[in-house]
Amino acid sequence: MNTQLRKGVIEMCILALIERKDMYGYEIVQSIARHTDINEGTVYPILRRLTVDGHFSTYLVESSGGPARKYYRLTAMGVNHLAELKREWFEMTDIVNKILRGE
């Protein structure tokens, strides 16, 4: 699959997962890796960039037996961005499916 498209889809999936519940880095990577063959190393940079762009806010939660966990949560801007991405995705797949099924 085209790299650019793939990146966009992964970004949307990350946003969607975190919309459901706040998660920390490792949790996010495992959730995605469970369903796709994405390279783990690519997730953190995307998380970071989405945070810098203002789609996430982060907070630290102390945990026993290890360093504090950085939790990611969607900002209002992130919620809007995700809604936009979802709309575009459903529109596009609708059209593509129609074409592939020969309608």
Binding site: G25, Y26, Y44, K70
Partner: peptide
């Protein structure tokens, strides 16, 4: 520093698992 902290957390979490 932020990035290194993130990856250190990632290693530590892996170890925990």
């Amino acid at each position: 520093d932020d990035i290194i902290r993130d990856y250190a957390e990632y290693f530590a979490e892996g170890q925990r698992q």
